[in-house]
Amino acid sequence: MRTSPRRQLISDSVLAVVMTAFSLLFALSVGPHTAVEWEGLTALPQRPADAFSLVLIVCCTLPLVFRRRWPFLILAATTVPVVVLNVLDYSAGLGDLAAMVLLYTVATQRGLALSVLAAVLVMAGYLAGALPGNQQLVWTDHAIIVVVTALVWVIGRTIRLRRAYLGELVDRADRLERAREADTRAARAEERSRIARELHDVVAHHVSVMTVQAAAARTMLEKDPQVARDALVSIEEMGRTAMAEMRSIVGVLRTDGPAERGPQPGMHDLPGLVDQMREAGLTTQLWLEGEVRQLPPGVDLAAYRLVQEALTNSLRHAGPAARAWVTVRHEPSELMVHVEDDGRGLVLKRENGGKGHGLVGIKERVALYGGVLRIGPRPGGGFEVRARFPLKDR
């Protein structure tokens, strides 16, 4: 988990203050004779700390407060006072340690080229300040400095690469999660659209037929009660059929158990559909051409729903004296469905605002199976719906 910038600034401020305090204490307490007491070495020509050197020591460590914001610039700026202190034989305190901290910061937060340049800058500052005045140092001492510098750089680069790798893994997981959510939303939208089409086809067809028959029953109630009674019986049967189909469709939405689903209607149910239209008052004729064969389930249902929606629109909009024709042609490579009427459905549809989901559902069904659809007025008057469904060779 990443640390907030405010907490990073606080921690860097504490680090800078602590290192500055210890650096000043080290410069004031450690002199040239201290090395003799510790190591038994010859006293080094080191000047005692004064105000000038203490200011330079502060300039070496206190800028660590901004080490995460401008690490390379801070490293370049602090290298100068370290070199000046070493050249003038002052104690640099913890200035060399601060340079290592800055090198580590550059290696972890900047690119390869800048981190290499930072390592070169650290070594150049060490050589410029240490070699001229420290003749007591041997080549092993210099080798240790080189090894420590390289080790700090390698650790910083390793941490940077690991962070980048983990960040890429997190980004990839986020992308996969977003893609999965998008696929889920698309699947849900497609399923909702399919259920909406099914519900519309069932409800619009049966309710339209029931409305026409109810109007006929109301008209004939006093003139011919028997005709009205037959119409009411037909309305009852149509209502039961509509409820059964709606129960089958809505059952798909249940999650507490398997839905009770009956077989979906298909082109073999067209004669019954045509009879329903005739009973509702729409003179309808059906022609079947070509060799009838078994259709793919999706095409079979889509073609049936197309005929159902087209006849329902003819019943609602074509007028009381209109006639409708349904032509189904089976060909080796395609299925052609043509529904037409001689009424004035286009005029009525414009008067009603042309609103509805039936034609949209037809277009979606035909497009889903790669078909070609034409909807519009007939040349001789009336309205027609023509669709061609491609069939794969079997």
Rank of each mutant, 00 (worst) to 15 (best):
N313W: 00
A214T: 13
R172S: 13
L288T: 15
V122R: 03
G156I: 07
I195G: 01
E279K: 15
A128K: 04
A77P: 02
T184R: 15
V307I: 12
G298R: 11
L288E: 11
L221H: 15
V120P: 03
L166N: 04
S333T: 12
M277D: 09
P265R: 11
A182L: 14
E181R: 14
L114V: 07
D89Y: 00
M336K: 10
A367C: 01
W153E: 02
L131V: 15
E384L: 15
D174W: 00
S4Q: 03
A130W: 03
H206R: 05
R254V: 07
F383K: 04
A43L: 04
Y126M: 05
L75A: 04
V233E: 14
L97M: 09
R240L: 07
E191M: 10
R378H: 10
A189V: 08
P258S: 05
A217K: 11
Q109M: 04
D201L: 02
E291T: 12
M238E: 12
V366T: 11
K392H: 06
L306N: 04
V122L: 08
V87C: 02
R160Q: 10
V212N: 13
D89Q: 09
A173R: 14
D50K: 02
Q294I: 09
D341I: 14
E168W: 00
T219R: 13
E39W: 11
V252Y: 14
G31P: 05
V80C: 10
T105V: 12
E198A: 14
V328C: 02
D12H: 10
P332E: 02
V83R: 02
Q109P: 00
V122G: 01
G156K: 08
L41T: 15
L169E: 13
R388P: 00
A107M: 12
L117N: 01
